[in-house]
Design a protein around this nucleic acid. Structure first.
Lengths: 208, 208, 208, 208
DNA sequence: GATGAATGAGGGTTCATTCAT
DNA sequence: CATGAATGAACCCTCATTCAT
């Protein structure tokens, strides 16, 4: 995964390169094996630096992980937001929603590791980073919910639906399907996925 | 412990009771905090037995967890299967599917802990119990997929849909929505949830 | 190894049979893997009894082991003693000594497990059974030393030799050679062993 | 720690010193009480380091022990080899052998702990380090056997003797006598020991 | 900026022993 | 006589963290 520089204005050279290496190493390792099971030693080794360097750059394992989560979910939310067609294009609201969902599928296809990491950690209360994850997750879902509200505003949504509920349903569906696709039938064309999701979304929207 | 029952499977009364206590304790603890973070000490303490008893009865932490997973997903699959109306009742295929989904929601509402445990562990490869989880998960999804195939057989399903894909989409949707419901808006009547899911399912089925 | 009933006048039937089974199981297990590494569970299992039975019959692991040691070294000492020709037979003193050594080799060949157990535990101070082992070992060596003294009394021994020292040298030699024989070249005829030992003994006796 | 030495093998000063402390601590403890009974806690404490340091430096208890064994028997074999007079000195073959045996006695007198450790562990099959011990033991015995072969080449050895067998007999004898000496009669002059062993060796060589 | 040796709290596991049946 | 479920102290090992270099 070729992660682009996470924040910090000018790339301060060596330091920034080290941080990036650590970032990538941690992401791949944690996504594959889980946070608890991944050791700082492993992260340092895969990044090709000494163990102390992790602490010098991130302060600790948990901070590194939190940074990872924030960076990841922020990117997801951004990606979804960018998929929303600007009003001036006059795209149909239903198609707008579909575009957002498609963007979600593509994102997960590209950042599979990140997606797995999020799903694994999303359902546990009592974790020090639960608040962070939850807030960010809500932000991502918010983009979808926003589209649903647009539809509702146009009277294009079934009146007995709660947009929050439906938004989270769509989100869960997108992630589950996309992940199953990558894990179980990666040879399948992405269009099949899009079709399935579009149909389910249309179920929410109701007959035109 | 109670009556006489003299032969094998006899004073197993004691043993079986202990196993059950351990089971319950492990389930609640692991679902809440996660597998890695839960200690054998905690499990034993909550079960009200000594630490060694865990090993006497289950062989180890991992075995206990695996037993938990198997038991859990088996129950889920059973519940879904039982929700399928018997053919002689002549229930409409679409309504059959809806009943299965509703049963899923109800199950998660009742066994929230189990559901969280499953979702947290479902997305990680390279875990020693991945095979177990995956197989069992597939079994549960299989019940949904089975209903979709019935619909397809009747020509009631959109022809461009893959039943496996759609099955996993419905499953992920059910779990996500149900869990969000319990976590975020537990005061909401279960009927709202059912409605949302029914609409999305109808999207798959297409206009009657 | 078909151990004959260790003490206790009349064989009290079931009890004695159980004790014997435990004895044999413990001997083979401990000789092979060592005292610390052998578990009471294993002993009980090999003996075909429940774990509690070990405690009912011997009081504990250490007591069982001590009983084993006592029984074993006593048998060794007895065997060596019985090999000493009675004075009335008028056997040459040198030949008497040789007979004792041969008896030692034969004993070890037959009770290899016991011999290994003794060698492994003989050299450690600070063990609760050190005194027992040491005393018994001394008793066995004493038989050899006794023969050397006979020779010395007849003026048949090199005058600058200490019989205690020489006795333990012979003992160590016998055990080492016999064990190496069984372990490394078991196909070799026992006569080769006897020859080697006889020569070394003759070195102590000096030229006739 | 001391000078500058900037490259690899440099600040290893610290690490090497720690390893040595651990080595010494483990040797004395294990030789006294045995491998199984000695705890890593004790070793660390005697070495004056934290428990984790044992694992950082040796990987585990067993590895530490194996390293100990290798180091020990290598030293023994070296000592014996160095005791063999160089050919140009033209030392008599019988005297050569005697010198090797004396060197063995002296070594054991100096490294009593090591010798006890070796004897205790030499007779058990099925230990993970059995192969190591056995191979090294053979190497040490090999030096003695080598001398016997020299004698045989010169026709100075009884023709009916197997050198391997006789070599192990001498080895066992040396160790047993030396250890008994240190344990039971440490006040005795080393010359007495040498005399006894020389006589027994002469028994093998036969009359000049 | 980076390193890596050292730390020690804490976790999983083993096993001799007890005791109610 | 014998059993086997239960116990808990003690063990080996892991790993996030610190800090002198």
């Amino acid at each position: 995964m070729s992660t682009s520089t996470p924040r910090r204005g000018r790339a301060s050279g060596r330091r920034e390169a080290t941080r990036q290496r650590l970032f990538d190493a941690a992401l791949s390792l944690i996504a594959e094996h889980g946070y608890d099971v991944t050791t700082v030693d492993e992260i340092a080794e895969r990044a090709g630096v000494a163990k102390g360097t992790v602490y010098y750059n991130f302060g600790g394992k948990e901070e590194l992980y939190t940074a990872l989560l924030e960076w990841g979910v922020t990117r997801l939310a951004e990606t979804l937001r960018e998929a929303v067609p600007p009003p001036e294009e006059g795209v149909d609201e239903r198609d707008s929603l579909i575009r957002v969902l498609r963007a979600g599928v593509v994102f997960i296809g590209t950042h599979e590791e990140l997606a797995r990491m999020l799903m694994a950690e999303s359902w546990r209360t009592n974790r020090s980073w639960y608040a962070t994850v939850h807030q960010l997750r809500t932000e991502a879902i918010g983009v979808i919910t926003g589209q649903l509200e647009q539809l509702a505003g146009r009277g294009r949504l079934r009146p007995d639906l709660d947009t929050d509920l439906a938004g989270s349903a769509l989100f869960g569906m997108v992630v589950t399907v996309a992940l199953n696709w990558r894990n179980l039938q990666p040879e399948r064309p992405v269009e099949d996925i899009h079709t399935t999701l579009a149909h389910m979304a249309d179920g929410l929207i109701g007959p035109a």
